[in-house]
């Protein structure tokens, strides 16, 4: 008979609760992640274009977009004609 291994996460849950700040931060990340990924569904876009469409501040878009890029959800596209802004697209 297979013995079910106890998960240590259940032990720490008895001692520790998740802070309100961590919960809020998690919610915010999920919300922004959805907005950015949805914005890029149609075509590759620059950070100001994503910020304009999602109504998020551009620095917030930069932070989360680069994080999504780091973890492989987004990849870098072409730079615009003025050599100013790169476009970003969903990674297939």
């Amino acid at each position: 008979m297979e013995i079910k291994k106890i998960k240590t996460i259940d032990i720490i849950k008895e001692k520790r609760t998740v802070s309100a700040e961590a919960k809020q931060n998690h919610k915010e990340y999920n919300k922004i992640k959805k907005l950015i990924l949805k914005s890029l569904e149609s075509e590759a876009k620059t950070i100001p274009q994503i910020a304009g469409e999602t109504k998020l501040p551009p620095d917030v878009v930069t932070f989360y977009l680069m994080t999504l890029r780091k973890y492989g959800s987004i990849e870098t596209g072409e730079i615009d004609d003025m050599d100013e802004y790169f476009s970003y697209k969903l990674k297939k």
């Binding site: 950070i47 620095d59 878009v61």
Partner: peptide
């Protein structure tokens, strides 16, 4: 890039 808007 610039952190504010990703401009080079």
């Amino acid at each position: 890039l610039r952190p504010k808007d990703g401009k080079m």
